[in-house]
Design a protein around this nucleic acid. Sequence first.
DNA 1: ATATCCTACAACCAAATGGTTGTAGATCAG
DNA 2: CTGATCTACAACCATTTGGTTGTAGGATAT
Lengths: 110, 110
Amino acid sequence: MVVDQHSETEIDRLFQAFSDATRRDIVRRVTVGEYSVSGLAALYAMSFAAVQKHVAVLERASLVTKEKRGREQIVRGNHDGLQKARQLLDEYEAIWRQRVDRIADILAEK
Amino acid sequence: MVVDQHSETEIDRLFQAFSDATRRDIVRRVTVGEYSVSGLAALYAMSFAAVQKHVAVLERASLVTKEKRGREQIVRGNHDGLQKARQLLDEYEAIWRQRVDRIADILAEK
DNA sequence: ATATCCTACAACCAAATGGTTGTAGATCAG
DNA sequence: CTGATCTACAACCATTTGGTTGTAGGATAT
């Protein structure tokens, strides 16, 4: 495998971030509206610190942004990460379509 | 969070499977053509057993299928997992679009 | 001024992950 | 038949992950 190390670990982080139900829920929530970290923490049956870590994972994956406002940290959705993930999966879908086309061509030759 | 446990852990597995560069490479390869597990193992700087585990992770995520042929196990791409992942991300994209529409409506009211 | 709220971060823990080596059973080739 | 190949799986190991509690500091409200 000779792949760009930087972007590959970025993609690792992106899908890793999506692979947890709590984090996916956070992403949905903060895309619709604003939440402070403690506001999010109130929603789940886990400690504030645990939610804080989830938000940190999402931020590193560009799925969420944080902005300090007074004593609160406001969490909002970040479209960048989602767009990158979707683009990635579109590439895999394109490989499937090429394969289907290739098989169709072979059948047509007969 | 009151979510369907079964499908949620399925999604966990799906994105978890995508969060590793070797596994993503395997998915691309076996979508284009057929590979035995040892055929795949020859491509990477890791043991046969490690690749075997990666394939197992992909199989559980419905990103790949295995079929025994003689003494070999043939690995092929499985479109189901990819489709599910793409559908999921499309739902997140839809949330974004709703948000954009909502903001546009508010602006239009003024 | 002081108590409360929100956040950051360290230290710790159990379980999962990604890798290894080794063993054993099928299947194939000569 | 024998040896080589392919796979499955167990046992082990280091690191990461997802959670906890505790401490400390900055911002807010009374």
